[in-house]
């Protein structure tokens, strides 16, 4: 029974830091200031439907762009030599070692109306373009910050893909394109799903990116929740209700994604 006793600290950890907070959120979501049971927190949610929709759309766009960048990148990187791969991976990880806010502030100054980008464009006589405080800036911030979460799982799946499947496909008459379409891509789907989940979830719940790069123009779920706890509209009960709704949304999205994976949950988050 060694194994059982060894698991105790982890069970304890999960109880304290995962289960109890979750229960608290549920309790808050279904109570009012007096602590009495109520559903009224959910009555108001339709007011924020547009924020929900906006968040989902932006998160989806960011996820799609990440996928479009990450898949070809991972695919070709997996075919490179070990030194090149190590350097490339290091470069991908490097920005993550810097503070998240710092990186986003940097984007602010790049995208500003008088920022680096517009100065550069100005040299060529283009612009100035207005990017900061738009949805484009928010999506850009999401893609920049969360791209590594898409690359890592896809790369690791493609990299570990057993070469024998590729040889078997070639042996059966498949050229490079057919081999990719019929074997490599389907076999790399678990990595794609995992990457999609890992980009979609932080994208839909972010508030710093939308706040800094979106100004007040791009108001997302994360901002809404933050406002209920730290902002002007202090209402933790409503905040919990929105958080709970978002949890359900993410859960549903993940379940749908997993369905595409053909039940190969092993490599997918969830």
């Amino acid at each position: 029974m060694r194994t059982k006793s060894a698991a105790v600290p982890y069970v304890f950890w999960m109880a304290v830091f995962v289960v109890i907070p979750l229960v608290l959120i549920v309790v808050y979501a279904f109570t009012n200031y007096d602590g009495a049971f109520t559903l009224e927190n959910f009555d108001n949610i339709d007011v924020f439907l547009q924020v929900f929709g906006n968040s989902v759309v932006l998160a989806l766009i960011a996820t799609a762009i990440c996928l479009l960048i990450a898949y070809p990148f991972s695919y070709f990187l997996a075919q490179e030599g070990p030194v090149f791969r190590k350097v490339a991976m290091l470069l991908i990880m490097l920005p993550m070692w810097m503070n998240f806010l710092l990186r986003t502030y940097a984007w602010m100054s790049i995208l500003e109306n008088n920022g680096f980008l517009n100065q550069l464009l100005g040299l060529f006589g283009i612009g100035p373009v207005h990017i900061i405080n738009t949805d484009i800036a928010v999506v850009l911030g999401m893609v920049y910050n969360f791209l590594p979460f898409m690359i890592l799982p896809i790369f690791s799946v493609i990299d570990k893909l057993d070469h024998k499947y590729i040889e078997a496909a070639q042996d059966l008459g498949a050229n490079k394109r057919e081999t990719f379409r019929r074997v490599i891509f389907p076999l790399s789907l678990p990595g794609v799903l995992s990457g999609v989940t890992m980009v979609f979830i932080p994208s839909i719940s972010t508030f710093a990116i939308s706040k800094l790069l979106g100004g007040g123009m791009s108001f997302l779920l994360g901002d809404l929740i933050e406002m209920q706890f730290l902002g002007s509209a202090y209402n933790p009960h409503l905040g919990s209700a929105i958080a709970l709704m978002m949890l359900v949304l993410v859960l549903v999205a993940t379940l749908i994604t997993n369905r595409f994976g053909g039940g190969d949950e092993g490599t997918v988050l969830m």
């Binding site: 057993d162 024998k164 499947y165 040889e167 078997a168 496909a169 042996d171 059966l172 074997v183 076999l187």
Partner: peptide, 10 residues
């Protein structure tokens, strides 16, 4: 065509 050592079934 080849029958591979560990079959390599898809």
């Amino acid at each position: 065509n080849t029958v591979f050592q560990k079959y390599a079934l898809f």
